[in-house]
Design a protein around this nucleic acid. Sequence first.
DNA 1: GCGTATCCCATTGACGCCCATATGGTCCCA
DNA 2: TGGGACCATATGGGCGTCAATGGGATACGC
Lengths: 176, 176
Amino acid sequence: MLIRLAKLCLISGVSGVFWSPGSLRERMFRVMSRFLSNATNRIDAKGRVSVPSAFRSVLAQRNVQELYCFQDFVFPAISVGGPDLLERFERQIAAEDPFSPDANEMSLLIHGGGVFMKLDAEGRLMVTDFIRGFTGISDEVTFVGRADHFQLWQPQAFVAAQAQARGERKLAGKRS
Amino acid sequence: MLIRLAKLCLISGVSGVFWSPGSLRERMFRVMSRFLSNATNRIDAKGRVSVPSAFRSVLAQRNVQELYCFQDFVFPAISVGGPDLLERFERQIAAEDPFSPDANEMSLLIHGGGVFMKLDAEGRLMVTDFIRGFTGISDEVTFVGRADHFQLWQPQAFVAAQAQARGERKLAGKRS
DNA sequence: GCGTATCCCATTGACGCCCATATGGTCCCA
DNA sequence: TGGGACCATATGGGCGTCAATGGGATACGC
């Protein structure tokens, strides 16, 4: 527990300049905080789970009311961010050849595979079948910060993926 | 030809709606009223199925009373939108040589392969043989949001198509 | 007149909104 | 420095509302 809270404490206090897309105003917001670290919360009998407070305050700072959630392209995880996330994807569609089947597939994933969700008054979200089926989540959720968004993982799947990523980096070379 | 028609679909649809000029307020409105996410509902003994509430409210915001339904150009799915969808296609045809093979075939698909439908008082639509035959739908329908329209899929066909699209994206390494 | 589609009402199960509580941390003061 | 009041967060649960579904009744077309 001590370790978990210590991790969370880091999140709110982060500051510093880093590059991100968007206008100056948007960047000013993002500079102040980002989604960092991870925490595991339980799902209650009604299928709800509390979003970590640190993540909620990041959302509040960014004036994010509705959460755009989609099934991640590479990991068995649900990625969660503001509507700007969806707009970035749509911009990406518009950027590449809009005639390509690629764009059509992209739309199938980000529109057909994406949901807008809202938190309740206590900062909890419903863990729907949409989330459970794709992630394998049953009774616990691991929230993982990814700077401009965060992810929902099945706890064991997360530690496994993290361990594998760590191993691959070790094999890849001695770069930091 | 199929690719060509798919192009027309993308031109008139996804990219055409959301990147048109307009005030921030107008864009906000459009953002709020997109068809997003997917949901699977049962067909009752009379052959009716409830359109998800989220989609119905989008239709209401756009003052869509009659639904224009047509067989999708690339997927085994029925695409559903307002009359404006059909009008965009017709404008597209009018833009080309009216006697060209392209325009001819386009008309064959959007006119010959399209119907108008209405929802009942509870927001349900009849699943006709027109829909069943083309999609393979039997007792359940998956509604899939596609930004400016939505689609009716046979549930298994949808997860298969989505999985394939995701697999191709993963291989391409296009994760943003 | 019979099959089909539309209208209307009932049911129920899920979800949103609200308040309660416990657990653990922080801060203040002796 | 240690104890205790105070606070924040995570979690549990009651309850009302609404959406999804089922089914009877009626209108319409062949």
